[in-house]
Nucleic acid binder design. Structure first.
Lengths: 232, 232
DNA sequence: ACGTGTGAACACATTCACAGCT
DNA sequence: AGCTGTGAATGTGTTCACACGT
């Protein structure tokens, strides 16, 4: 029903909390779809794979949105978290590098259940430019600045080979894009004020290998200690 | 030249350090390719996008592999980090879900410059089963247990739709796989002793949106505070 | 009676700054 | 003289346990 008075809300939500809010949001949306109206921190924590104290502390950073003795109203929490994450507005995304990965990203429909809109697909390869992917024409990378301006792109996704990534990042930054999601296996250099996040398959595999080796090595003392751990 | 005496090496490398070792390794391999023999913490830190104190503390957890007044021998460090991460042995990987993303993963050649071998591709869709992707035949998911056993799979990659992910995870676990990399947007439930890492596009976008909104909102005070931040 | 919200204790991670080795 | 390795200081994140409101 989303009708309670808007809360004052403190500044400065911890980074670790921000990283978990999308997980809570997804769990809440699933509950909403199932028609659940209210949920306790214990149950929501279970669905999100964290412990309940952490969940309560996280939510407390957004304001006092629960009811003691009862729990949280699902619909209201969905709204509050969405608003906090900036999902009540639409973000325009451009993807550069329409190889296998770029295509996978372009076709990935459920972009967090709304909040994001793919505005353009760009590539340098004349073989790829002009093709239609996910009902969008792939345009040449030379149009990057124009596309960013005309479509109001605020998030740039880099899915190019490693060698091209820094150049694309530079052009994004130059064009005024201050949020970049990088899938290329390189460390990007960007000026202050630009926010880069990276997703790196081989790093994740290497971390898994490290723990797997630990389990095989030591086996005995404190072997299964890191069970169920997730990316943080 | 890899010839110095093997160091004792302490137990228990901090998780945050483990997550950065692959980044250092990649930077070092690039240096090695360029023929650099020796590097200071300052320079390596620059290449890896961290500060030098952090880099030195990280490396100190592996042992005393530097030379005061000089720096680190590139080749030796590459070897030590590789060994620590378990990359001196080969890990057999099975990918389940050969959609756009699964194909992208299968074709992603540089699997951290060796250490990982794709042993099998599996899918439930009869339309996809039997096709050849990245020079491997896609096999039906029903063969999961057999493939895990026969190919010695130790890392399972889940690239299925959200609805199928938990079922696949259960089968991996049942078959004895204790390392899982999950690309499906769900929280996986696994028993203790199983290590799950997740990669989630929409979570990354939502975190970017949060910071972008902050920059737009507050703008003035402490606006560009989170510049250049990366996934940790 | 129940479950949230939160101070206090603890654990982990980063940064500083310099002693100690080459 | 220069750069590593590391204690000490600081900052961040997690968990505990219970007071408080409903």
């Amino acid at each position: 029903m989303i009708s309670r008075p808007p809360r004052p809300r403190e500044r400065g939500i911890p980074e670790a909390t921000v990283a978990r809010l999308p997980v809570y949001l997804r769990a809440l949306q699933a509950l909403q779809d199932r028609g659940t109206a209210t949920i306790s921190s214990e149950d929501l924590a279970g669905a999100a794979g964290v412990n309940s104290a952490k969940l309560r502390k996280d939510l407390s950073h957004l304001g006092s949105y629960g009811t003691r003795g009862v729990g949280y109203e699902v619909e209201y929490l969905v709204y509050q978290i969405s608003r906090e994450l900036g999902l009540t507005q639409d973000w325009s995304v451009a993807i550069v590098g329409i190889g296998n990965l770029g295509r996978a990203l372009a076709n990935y429909g459920g972009f967090g259940t709304r909040g994001f809109r793919i505005a353009a697909l760009l590539d340098a390869d004349p073989e790829v430019v002009g093709r239609s992917v996910a009902s969008l024409d792939v345009r040449h990378i030379d149009n990057l600045e124009e596309v960013v301006r005309d479509k109001g792109v605020s998030i740039g996704v880099i899915a190019t080979p490693a060698g091209s990534a820094q150049g694309v990042a530079d052009r994004f930054v130059e064009a005024g894009v201050t949020s970049i999601l990088n899938f290329a296996p390189v460390v990007l250099n960007v000026p202050d004020g630009v926010d880069v996040r990276k997703v790196d398959l081989s790093i994740e595999l290497q971390i898994l290998a490290f723990h797997a080796q630990r389990r095989a090595d030591g086996d005995g003392p404190g072997a299964a200690e890191r069970a169920g751990l997730e990316v943080t």
